[in-house]
Design a binder for these strands. Structure first.
Lengths: 346, 346
DNA sequence: GAACAAAATGTGCTCGAACACATAATTAAA
DNA sequence: TTTAATTATGTGTTCGAGCACATTTTGTTC
């Protein structure tokens, strides 16, 4: 990969002008067989790679990317995304690029639709979307596509051929990771899967995690574990949880499928005397505190910051450097304990 | 960050020519106070960011980067590095860049010196070095600096003001992560730290890991653990290990500070009847097999591939886009079990 | 105020790809 | 063979930063 050839070099070697080489490279036709042959002969011998820097200099279009995600004020799971966006802006500010952030309320599908309506009207070149509401997302993707706006997603997977790119985690696998961890630290007994959500049916991600978690133990064919699940809503979850704990006094482990572990860990600790293993999700400040004082054993990092940063950089690579968009990028399922947490928080 | 201003724009706004703006931006002097003021006034109002693409078009120098690392044929820990280099070459092939790989024998400081001598003579723009031999590395760094060759390191940290950049892991912290894991899965008893190396005194990285591991238990002030360490050499390590195991029959956990866990796990399993917790390093094929069939509990990923890839991309960002080199980049200390391993192996 | 030096400022070219447009070569029709 | 139509090929300009060089302005001295 030593000498870098230019179009001019190829033209010279093939004995034609750079215009003709350009037509061959871009298959614009209007080239004689003779010229085509001699240029192809040169191309097959050298390793021509167009200079991306020169190619993009000419392209003085300013690309606009809109990022649509839940307002971190409602759910601090999304807080790291702000940093991710800021980093991306800083990293790419020297290119012709505008990045806009648009928030919606994660518990209101109406605000989701509204904000996307606004973004459609802004007519950006691409949207990076956290499609929390499955059905609504499908509809809104249609609208984007009709206006020829590129749609990529992160965090939540939505099955659609129109979506070019997804960055997130394999949730089924993520449940399996939790299960394996649980088996490592809790030798036997009852294990509870606890979901905390308003509408469980809409929360496909929790269902996937539960399936993954259970699949691990099914494959293990180990009768020393008994898996039970519990769904909690925001209203009156304390009472329901306390009841559950008195009904199941032999609990040895709890797997919480959302980032809300901090809401219930203290309640569990007060109600149960024995050591109980707790595995949750995400490095929220409150979870980290519980991790550090030993009340949570492991957290699984879904890495929202990296998700959004990568989502943006794929778009930049696509627009600025003409790179292809790969279809799905599954981020690693990071296992976090008190000692390595800092590296995933920055 | 909407409109992108160019030098021409600034010149127009300040009522001067682009040459004068250029002189101000680069502090080349020869500018009147009046012109300076008006240009500064414009600069303070707008957010000028030079177009990196245009800046680098002119710079038609071909940068050469030499990567110096142990030959993976001797130690397959380094195998992923090949992939990392290949990915970097692919990613950056459109820029004016040549990446050369040079191997040495990880057990021979002579080959280390020899290959670096060759690289010095090749006079690249930068070297990315795995400085396995501390003392020798310091000497060779001097030589590079004298020839104005930029030196960055990865994997092993060497204290030197001449080294601009290091990518690797905080080994002390990495030992602590292992300790915390050990405490999670092994409730009590004797725990062994096992080093496998020819020259322990030279192997600072193992010492750091041991210190970190012990520091965790010291802070915990938990008398239910007893930590003992053992050094093994390649010759006759089986006998020495077997002796050690008979002398310490109550062993409940083993922490292996190198990627060589696969060499001793089977021996341990044959000699010990009780469940013994094993934590090792790095995703070598043989380690992964043992992880998958439950004979290793956790592996800590040092991510050599990512280390080398990042090391190269920092250099590219520096040369091609004029980015500053940050001093030290500590990669996350990834905890790996059978369920999430695939994400760290690609 | 002329003559000259020094400082300040402006102009024009380069990098490589892309594409519009001008010109040359070839073929078809008269 | 001439003319027009078609096809093939070459030329020139653009993008933004950077820098060499030309030109203008200012300052100094006799």
């Amino acid at each position: 990969m030593n000498k870098k050839y230019t179009i001019k070099d190829i033209a010279q070697l093939a004995g034609v002008s750079k215009g003709t080489v350009d037509r061959v490279l871009h298959k614009r036709g209007k080239v004689s067989q003779k010229a085509l042959d001699s240029i192809n002969a040169v191309l097959s011998e050298i390793d021509y790679e167009p200079n991306l820097i020169a190619r993009n200099l000419k392209n003085n279009k300013i690309y606009t990317i809109c990022v649509v995600l839940p307002d971190p004020a409602y759910d601090s799971y999304w807080l790291p995304c702000i940093k991710g966006i800021e980093e991306a802006i800083k990293e790419f500010k020297a290119f012709n690029l505008t990045i806009e952030t648009h928030y919606f309320d994660p518990e209101s599908s109406k605000t989701f639709l509204d904000v996307n309506e606004i973004v459609v009207d802004r007519a950006p070149d691409a949207v990076l979307l956290a499609p929390l509401f499955y059905k609504e997302a499908l509809g809104i993707v249609e609208k984007y596509i009709k206006k020829e706006i590129l749609v990529n997603t992160f965090n939540n997977q939505v099955e659609s051929n129109e979506i070019r790119n997804f960055v997130g985690q394999d949730l089924h696998r993520s449940g399996r990771v939790a299960a394996k961890l649980m088996a490592s630290i809790s030798q036997k007994g009852q294990i509870a899967i606890i979901h905390i959500a308003e509408k469980f049916k809409n929360a496909i991600h929790m269902q996937e995690k539960e399936k993954g978690f259970r699949s691990y133990f099914v494959e293990k064919e180990d009768s020393i574990y008994e898996i039970i699940s519990l769904k909690l809503k925001r209203t009156n979850y304390e009472a329901k949880l306390t009841d559950f704990l008195t009904e199941n006094p032999k609990l040895s482990g709890v797997f919480i499928t959302t980032s809300k572990a901090y809401q219930i860990v203290e309640i569990i600790n007060e109600a149960v005397n024995d050591k109980i293993s707790i595995i949750g999700y995400d490095l929220l400040e409150k979870n980290i505190t519980l991790l550090n004082n030993g009340k949570i054993d492991f957290l699984i990092n879904q890495n929202p910051k990296q998700q959004i940063y990568l989502g943006i950089s794929f778009l930049v690579d696509h627009f600025i450097f003409g790179k292809e968009l790969r279809n799905t990028t599954f981020l690693p399922i990071d296992i976090v304990n008190s000692e390595n947490a800092s590296y995933y928080m920055e």
